[in-house]
Amino acid sequence: MLSSLYIVRHCEATGQASEAPLTVQGTQQAGKLTEFFSTLKVDQIISSPFERAIQSIFPFAQKTGIPIATDERLKERVLSNENLEDWLEKLKASYEDMELRYDGGESSLEASNRIIELFEEIKRSEVKTSIIVTHGNLLSLALKYYDQAFGFSAWKKLSNPDIYLLQLDGDQVIIRRLWGNRE
């Protein structure tokens, strides 16, 4: 059965902490996401438990009455529990070596495995259309799982928000970017 997963990177937020809310612009973007999804028949919404992710899809959920389920597997990846001054270079290296792990952090492979586990569960279910709200690094690692060409430079080009459609049908996967720097 064909599963359509609309994977959303959250709207613009005030910071990186789990409780960081959307900015004023991020709230406006959430309204635009509601318009974007308004013509779709959506079966479920699953979000990262982080505030910015939930707030990004809340207006759509409120309009449609579809509850937002949260899933810990969608929370943003922790690169390290240390403050890394050269974090961008370390992040780039983690796309090249998927098993590279920094102190207190999660490797790209570990992060990818948890989101793909969720996707596989959805694929095995009767659900046809899902909206999945997550974070940039995790979204990019999921896309890299299906398309090895998607790496660090593609991550840098993601926008807030951003939307990719993954259509999973047996072993076949189709990926399309639907949003990307629309504003």
Rank of each mutant, 00 (worst) to 15 (best):
G65H: 09
M98A: 08
I45S: 13
K63R: 14
K92R: 15
H10L: 05
L5I: 15
Q55H: 11
Y6Q: 07
V42N: 11
E121L: 05
S48H: 03
Q44D: 09
A93W: 03
R9D: 01
I7Y: 04
E120I: 08
E121T: 04
S94T: 14
S48N: 05
L84C: 06
S80C: 11
N137H: 08
I175S: 00
E183R: 05
A93P: 02
D147N: 13
V8N: 07
I68W: 07
E120Q: 15
A149K: 11
S80L: 08
E110Q: 15
E183A: 07
F58I: 00
N181H: 05
Q44F: 10
V133L: 12
D103A: 14
D103M: 05
N181V: 01
I175G: 01
E76Y: 00
F150Y: 13
E106K: 03
L178T: 08
Q148W: 03
T34I: 03
D169N: 14
F58G: 00
E120L: 14
S108V: 01
L168E: 06
P67S: 13
Y102W: 14
S112Y: 01
R114N: 11
E183S: 08
Q25G: 08
A154T: 11
I132K: 01
E72Y: 11
K32Q: 13
E72C: 03
L143T: 09
E126N: 14
E12F: 00
V42R: 10
E126H: 13
Q28D: 11
D169Y: 02
A69Y: 10
P161F: 10
E82I: 10
P67N: 12
L178D: 11
E51D: 08
E51W: 04
E99W: 01
I116T: 12
I57Q: 09
S159H: 01
R73I: 07
Q172N: 13
E110P: 00
I175P: 00
T27C: 07
L138G: 02
Q29M: 10
Y95K: 11
G31A: 05
Q172F: 05
R73E: 09
V127Y: 04
N137F: 01
M98K: 10
G105Q: 04
T129L: 04
Q25C: 06
L88H: 03
A111I: 04
S3M: 14
K156L: 15
N181I: 02
R176E: 15
K92S: 14
P67H: 13
L74D: 00
G170N: 11
L178S: 09
P67C: 06
P21M: 07
Y6E: 05
A154C: 01
A111V: 02
F37Y: 12
S94G: 05
A111G: 15
E85D: 14
D171T: 12
R182Y: 12
C11T: 13
E82C: 02
G15A: 09
K63P: 02
Q25I: 15
R182E: 15
T129W: 03
Y164D: 00
I163V: 15
L100V: 03
L22I: 12
